[in-house]
Nucleic acid binder design. Structure first.
Length: 322
DNA sequence: ATGGTTTTTACTGCGTC
DNA sequence: GACGCGGTAAAAACCAT
């Protein structure tokens, strides 16, 4: 059943990708080369930064949400309610007393046999519990990834991270949800499609603090290498949320590049920089959006936007006429 | 815990529509 | 007069030590 829908979806997707990769890789706007950035789910023009194809991944079910509000309303996926089901009297338990059903002691031969059975039963049970654990975690990851519009490869990465965490016995003392959330957070950042901790928190069932704590822990224990998020990776999302043109995005990227050249951005929050860049470039391109609008979609305060965007503009000046 | 840095909150003044 | 914007001071959050 799902088989057909899945096949349908993927084949559609493949067709799209084929036409994108085979036909011609030229930007309709400026004729520059197109770069298919499947990690971000975008096809971007290398010249002008025009995003030709966006959000092409995740041909998900109908509850795809297009903004935060819809997301809240439509997300009808919850954690699998396995708590109610699994193990409800279904798993086997072997008594520790070497007695048979009538209370008689067993022969030594029988005792030996029971001992072996106990061992194996235990093995299967723990394996099962790991399996279940994983299943729940993966479901959770999937749910959150959908809500955040993260592409498949991020989910893949997230599940890999989670598996590793599980294998390394990082779970005891931590919640499954916490670890899966952290895995997703890490995966998103690794893939260059970062979501802010706040966004992650919104779709997770775990408190922000715990996520942060667990995230740090997991990263440290698994030796994951995650560099600070690149402000540029937030630009397309903010811009499209605000309905801004590709030109604005291009400008914003440019601003960020010049800012980077000058090292203006150390210790500052990448989100803030991105938001400021978007705001600044909307001004430069005469497509004004208000600061409060930007602060809304970026979840950043207006003050921060102000501060950053001054710095950005200064950096730009210095960049063009050093 | 502490201190330094960044972000947020809250408030105020200015110009414009 | 409401709105967008800029600035400021104090509080809160964050991070490394």
């Amino acid at each position: 059943m799902t088989d057909t829908t899945i096949r349908h979806n993927t084949s559609e997707r493949e067709r799209e990708e084929e036409s994108a990769s085979e036909d011609e890789l030229v930007c309709p706007e400026c004729g520059g080369d197109l770069i298919s950035d499947s990690e971000r789910g975008e096809t971007v023009c290398g010249e002008c930064g025009l995003v030709v194809e966006e959000d092409e991944i995740d041909p998900g079910p109908e509850w795809r949400a297009f903004d935060a509000r819809e997301k809240d309303e439509k997300s009808r996926v919850g954690a699998p309610t396995t708590n109610m089901m699994h193990d409800k009297g279904l798993s086997t338990n072997i008594g520790w007393q070497d007695k048979d059903a009538y209370g008689n002691s067993l022969s030594s031969r029988q005792r030996e046999k029971m001992q072996r059975l106990r061992t194996w039963n235990e093995r299967f049970r723990t394996r099962d519990s790991k399996e279940r654990n994983l299943k729940q975690a993966l479901g959770e990851i999937d749910r959150m990834a959908s809500a955040l519009g993260l592409p498949d490869n991020v989910r893949e990465t997230a599940s890999v991270i989670y598996r590793r965490a599980l294998d390394e016995n990082l779970l005891p003392g931590r919640s499954i949800e916490g670890v899966s959330t952290s895995s997703l957070y890490a995966a998103a950042r690794q893939a260059g499609t970062p979501r802010s901790l706040d966004e992650i928190t919104n779709v997770s069932r775990v408190e922000k603090d715990e996520i942060a704590r667990t995230y740090r822990y997991v990263v440290r224990e698994l030796g994951l290498e995650i560099q600070p998020a690149d402000p540029e990776s937030y630009v397309p999302r903010f811009a499209s949320d605000l309905g801004l043109s590709e030109e604005v995005q291009r400008q914003a990227r440019e601003l960020l590049v010049s800012a980077k050249e000058q090292g203006v951005h150390s210790g500052k929050s990448p989100v803030g920089l991105a938001a400021a860049a978007v705001y600044a470039s909307s001004l430069l391109a005469n497509e004004k959006v208000t600061q409060s609008e930007v602060s809304e979609v970026a979840n950043i305060s207006e003050v921060t936007i102000r501060n950053r965007y001054h710095e950005l503009l200064e950096a730009k000046e210095g960049f063009h006429a050093p």
